[in-house]
Measured scan of single mutants.
Amino acid sequence: MKVMIRKTATGHSAYVAKKDLEELIVEMENPALWGGKVTLANGWQLELPAMAADTPLPITVEARKL
């Protein structure tokens, strides 16, 4: 699914347009965010693609819901 990742004042957030859902990312498998699992505030887990740590945000990526 397409997910937009952006930086907020409190960390990172994910927006899933198909579900009209925006949630804070509360847990990251990798400190650089990319190439691992993230957990959203509502409990969803997404697998993000591997990208460079300095990838500019906001960005829309293809993520997989676990």
Rank of each mutant, 00 (worst) to 15 (best):
M1C: 14
M1P: 02
M1T: 09
M1V: 14
K2F: 13
K2W: 14
K2I: 14
V3C: 06
V3T: 02
M4C: 11
M4L: 13
M4H: 08
I5S: 00
R6N: 11
R6F: 14
R6E: 04
K7A: 10
K7N: 06
K7F: 08
K7W: 10
K7L: 10
T8H: 09
T8G: 08
A9V: 10
A9D: 11
A9I: 10
A9T: 12
A9W: 07
T10L: 14
T10I: 12
G11Q: 05
G11N: 03
H12Y: 15
H12R: 07
A14H: 04
A14D: 01
A14W: 08
A14Q: 02
A14V: 15
Y15G: 02
Y15L: 10
Y15F: 11
V16N: 07
V16A: 05
A17L: 15
A17D: 09
K18M: 14
K18V: 14
K18C: 15
K19Q: 15
D20M: 12
D20W: 07
L21M: 13
L21P: 02
L21I: 14
E22W: 14
E22S: 09
E22N: 09
E23Q: 12
E23P: 01
E23W: 15
E23S: 15
L24I: 13
I25F: 05
I25Y: 00
V26Q: 03
V26N: 03
V26D: 03
V26H: 04
E27Q: 12
E27S: 13
E27I: 09
E29I: 05
E29R: 04
N30E: 08
N30L: 09
P31R: 07
P31S: 09
A32S: 14
A32V: 09
A32C: 09
A32H: 14
A32T: 14
L33A: 03
L33G: 04
L33Y: 02
L33D: 02
W34N: 04
G35I: 03
G35C: 04
G36V: 04
G36R: 01
V38K: 00
V38P: 01
T39D: 00
T39A: 05
L40V: 02
L40N: 00
L40A: 02
A41Q: 09
A41H: 07
A41W: 04
A41I: 05
N42Q: 00
N42Y: 03
G43V: 03
G43Y: 04
W44G: 00
W44N: 03
W44Q: 03
Q45T: 13
Q45P: 02
Q45S: 08
Q45C: 10
E47V: 14
E47K: 10
E47Q: 13
L48S: 01
P49T: 04
P49I: 05
P49M: 05
A50P: 13
A50Y: 13
A50M: 14
M51A: 03
A52W: 06
A52T: 08
A53G: 09
D54F: 06
T55M: 06
T55F: 04
P56D: 08
P56N: 08
L57H: 01
P58V: 03
P58F: 07
P58M: 04
I59V: 13
I59M: 10
I59W: 07
T60A: 07
V61E: 01
V61L: 08
V61P: 00
V61Y: 00
E62T: 14
E62Q: 12
A63Y: 07
A63M: 06
A63C: 11
R64E: 09
K65M: 15
K65E: 11
K65W: 15
L66Q: 05
L66P: 06
